[in-house]
Nucleic acid binder design. Structure first.
Length: 477
RNA sequence: GUCCCCAUCGUCUAGUGGUUAGGACACCGGCCUUUCACGCCGGCAACAGGGGUUCGAAUCCCCUUGGGGACGCCA
């Protein structure tokens, strides 16, 4: 069985997260079976299909690494072929001209609704033999077959049956000669050699119509798989207005592309108890057996966890690249601080996203730090003045500014003062970072750099002196 | 309104007639620890409801309820 899948989005400007998952499943399935993954841009709605939208879409897919195996096909370039097929259907008797005006159709539906019926084209031009009305440009409609039912064979849903009588004669070619979605979709899938159609659940009801068309054309239908929807965390439909709907939002927010893909893959698919997958593992594990049929909600907590798992194992240069962007985003200069790879290593297990890393590493890149008042009051007390001054002097005289040397220096100072390492660690941390949380203290000082460290220790000593002075004057007064 | 799809812990899910209903996220304890994380150990927590079928149903069938989708000269 040959495998050729496709992702066929209409270019609306953003890559919808649900669409990304659909693309991912198509891509994975093709990769898994050594087939091809194709991209077709359904840009026949010319108003919405701006060139920049198309470019954005292709780029977004690229950023997640979902590259198609052939040049993307623009559906708009195929209208001649679509017309050809429509006329072929006309000649074979599977289609006919319909001279209804849009107003007439609207009125017809209105009446049907009023009578409590399903709005449906009544086939009034189906068997017309008389002369066509003057001045009306006709559309070409498909002649729905008379057979009893159509059966959609779906990977997830099994055989889904539709009574033909519930379907009506759909428009193939508009009055202006442009093809409609069903025709274009069916013809393009056939010509592209698509064998597996993996798409959203919202297309399930379109499939019987497309199947009828395929049958009328004598073609072999592809396999179908209709994926359940992706819902917002509250269980509602993902709103296009919500930024969480935009796949690129997650990249901007400091998530790793592979982590997003991993998360998305596990939403509606599973492989035993495994939660964390590399792309390679996904390719070798992905299969339709693991697919689920029910809609699933987005869970930001789980995404964060998955992302952290990926941060822990990601190549350091991948981390650095993203980190650089995140630092710039919050107004810091990535070049004015410790080497990015050291920063990445220090925080890859301590933050959930690269944005989190940048935020936590702020003190290593900025010149001004803010002392957290609570932490300072608690830790920078008069009793630590002497030890802090001693370690400050020792650090100033250090030959090499490495984490190992810094560690040894602090340990020696602590020992000579007869206090524990921990007694020195926290005051140093608060002095250098402004707060009580950071990587191990030797790493922290290394990352701050000697200049910043000594400078800030000086400030901290001043802070303590001020406290001592205040206490003294309070005692006197 | 008609048709179609879906239904296991709060969330993602495993399960395919016989399990103490498993795992993961989140949450709550504890351990580790120079802070925070990571890691490890433990806890809380589910088969929507009602009928069948069967010696036996989360698993099969029907109904109800709930959620979602489709009914265009949009895609």
């Amino acid at each position: 069985m040959s495998v050729r899948t496709r992702f066929a989005p209409s270019p609306t400007g953003v890559l919808h997260l649900g669409s990304l998952r659909t693309a991912l499943y198509n891509w994975l399935y093709a990769r898994r079976h050594g087939g091809e993954f194709l991209l077709r841009i359904e840009d026949t709605d010319r108003q919405r299909s701006l060139p920049e939208h198309i470019r954005a879409l292709v780029e977004a897919l690229q950023r997640f690494g979902l590259d198609p195996d052939e040049e993307p096909l623009l559906q708009s370039s195929r209208v001649e072929r679509h017309r050809e097929v429509a006329h072929q259907l006309l000649e074979s008797g599977s289609a006919y001209h319909c001279y209804c005006t849009p107003d007439e159709l609207a009125a017809m539906r209105e009446e049907q609704r009023a009578r409590g019926e399903v709005p449906r084209y009544d086939g009034r031009w189906r068997d017309n033999t008389g002369p066509p009305p003057a001045g009306v440009k006709p559309v070409i409609r498909f002649r729905r077959p008379d057979s009893e039912e159509v059966v959609v064979k779906d990977w997830l849903h099994g055989d889904v049956r539709y009574l033909n009588s519930q379907l009506d004669d759909l428009v193939l070619l508009r009055a202006d000669g442009s093809p409609t979605y069903h025709l274009s979709c069916v013809v393009d899938d056939e010509d592209m050699g698509v064998r597996q159609v993996i798409r959203g659940d919202d297309h399930l009801n379109n499939t019987p119509r497309q199947l009828q068309l395929i049958q009328a054309l004598g073609w072999t239908p592809p396999e179908y798989c209709h994926l359940p929807l992706l819902l917002a965390p509250d269980g509602k439909k993902l709103s296009k207005r919500d930024e969480a709907t935009d796949a690129l939002h997650y990249l901007r927010a400091g998530y790793l592309p592979d982590a997003v893909l991993n998360y998305l893959a596990r939403l509606g698919w599973s492989h035993g108890d495994q939660e964390v997958f590399t792309i390679k593992e996904l390719i070798s594990c992905f299969g339709r057996e693991g697919l689920g049929a029910s809609a699933s909600r987005l869970d930001p907590d789980k995404l964060n966890w998955i992302n952290q798992q990926h941060m822990k194992t990601a190549p350091v240069d991948v981390l650095c690249e993203g980190l650089e962007a995140q630092l710039e985003k919050i107004g810091l200069n990535p070049a004015d601080g410790p080497p990015l790879e050291k920063v990445a290593e220090a925080w890859r297990e301590r933050a959930e996203t690269l944005a989190g890393v940048a935020e936590a590493a702020r003190w290593a890149f900025s010149h001004e730090i803010e002392l957290d008042e609570k932490a300072a009051r608690k830790v920078l007390r008069p009793v630590v003045r002497e030890p802090l001054a001693a370690v400050c002097a020792a650090l100033a005289g250090l030959a090499e500014w490495t984490a190992a040397d810094i560690h040894a220096c602090i340990a020696e100072t602590a020992e000579s003062l007869g206090i524990g390492f921990g007694k020195l660690g926290q005051p140093l941390r608060v002095a250098v970072t402004g707060g009580g949380v950071s990587p191990p203290i030797d790493t922290t000082l290394y990352l701050a750099g000697r200049a910043r460290t000594l400078e800030r220790l000086d400030v901290a000593l001043g802070y303590i002196d001020a406290r001592i002075a205040a206490a003294g004057s309070a005692a006197q007064g």
